[in-house]
């Protein structure tokens, strides 16, 4: 009697019903979606390499590419592809932006996380978040139409488009992101660190500088790195505010041209498959690899923080 019933149960439990198959189906579907992120990043690398790869065999000279400042891909008689000036343009603008954005955003992050309270904190966080949302083309327009005349007036220079303008705009763009990430890093420091230090009689600022900042060090470094990555990769704002002329700059008022802006400005005028076209994709490979490296390092730095 009992064994009959048991057999019935066991057959029941070995039947894979529709729910079982749907579950397997969605498990596979979700897995494919999850892995697609890897597929996408690999295809980005694949396609920009595919378009730019043959440049390495045809016109690429390591010496010229990295050490020459002559970017003349459209020259009919003697096209050259030196990116030194472009790289310096990118570096000077990003560097200037970081000079402004790093201290500002670290201070803002410290203020929001450690000093501001309740309502003030919420309002500041919302404002910072909204700042981060302003599109880069709008920043470019602001640099072009508001900063440009301002710089001309203030410093009595003929043109207001250059490292200074671009750096300020880029700094304003990168600061909200860096602030948010830095604030997250500070918030991740457990409260009992602060309480322990306060129990020893330390004041708030002592706690912040002696306890919280050292504990959040890695997260803060990651915030700066991601800010650098953002500045390095920014396209439209730099294109519109840097003056976009190939130049080895000697002063902050000099006009420069950035790697990203070069692609944006020239790609539309090249024929698909031409040497110039391939050279621009080669710049893309370089940008991809550098930002990949920056993101990877930032990620490793943050992971190190967590393990700690």
């Amino acid at each position: 009697m009992n064994s009959d019933k048991n057999i019935l149960v066991s057959q029941d439990l070995d039947v894979k019903d529709s729910a079982w198959y749907w579950d397997k189906f969605f498990q596979i579907l979700m897995f494919i979606s999850g892995v697609s992120a890897i597929f996408l990043i690999v295809s980005i690398f694949f396609f920009i390499t595919k378009e730019g790869f043959s440049f390495f065999f045809e016109s690429f000279s390591f010496r010229e590419f990295f050490l020459s400042s002559a970017w003349r891909p459209t020259s009919l008689s003697n096209p050259t592809h030196g990116i030194l000036a472009l790289a310096i343009g990118t570096a000077s603008v990003t560097g200037f932006a970081m000079l402004l954005a790093v201290p500002f955003s670290l201070c803002a992050a410290i203020f929001i996380s450690e000093f501001a309270s309740g309502r003030v904190r919420e309002i500041l966080k919302v404002l910072i978040e909204l700042l981060a949302a302003i599109p880069s083309v709008v920043w470019g327009f602001i640099g072009l139409s508001i900063m440009n005349p301002l710089i001309i007036d203030l410093f009595d220079v003929p043109v207001g488009l250059g490292i200074l303008n671009s750096g300020i705009i880029l700094g304003l763009m990168a600061a909200p992101i860096m602030t948010t990430i830095a604030e997250d890093a500070l918030k991740a420091v457990p409260d009992h660190y602060r309480e322990a230090a306060e129990a020893l009689g330390a004041t708030k600022w002592q706690v912040t500088f002696k306890v919280v900042l050292p504990a959040a060090k890695n997260g803060l470094v990651a915030a700066i790195l991601l800010g650098v990555g953002r500045g390095f990769g920014e396209t439209m704002a730099v294109l519109m505010t840097s003056g976009h002329s190939i130049n080895l700059p000697t002063s902050p008022f000099d006009s420069v041209r950035a790697l990203t802006a070069t692609i944006a400005a020239e790609l539309g005028e090249t024929a698909v498959g031409s040497e110039h076209y391939k050279a621009l994709f080669t710049l893309g490979i370089l940008l991809f690899l550098v930002t990949f490296a920056i993101n990877l390092i930032a990620d490793i730095v943050v992971k190190g923080n967590k393990r700690h």
């Binding site: 999850g34 990043i41 980005i44 880069s136 944006a264 893309g284 991809f288 990949f292 990620d299």
Partner: peptide, 26 residues
């Protein structure tokens, strides 16, 4: 996968443009 997502967000927009041109347009 996480690294790939971080990089999808971190790769410059102009590189995405190059990818779109190479992959989808052409």
């Amino acid at each position: 996968i996480n690294l790939a997502i971080i990089n999808l967000a971190g790769v410059p927009s102009i590189v995405h443009a190059l990818f779109g041109l190479g992959a989808f347009v052409i």
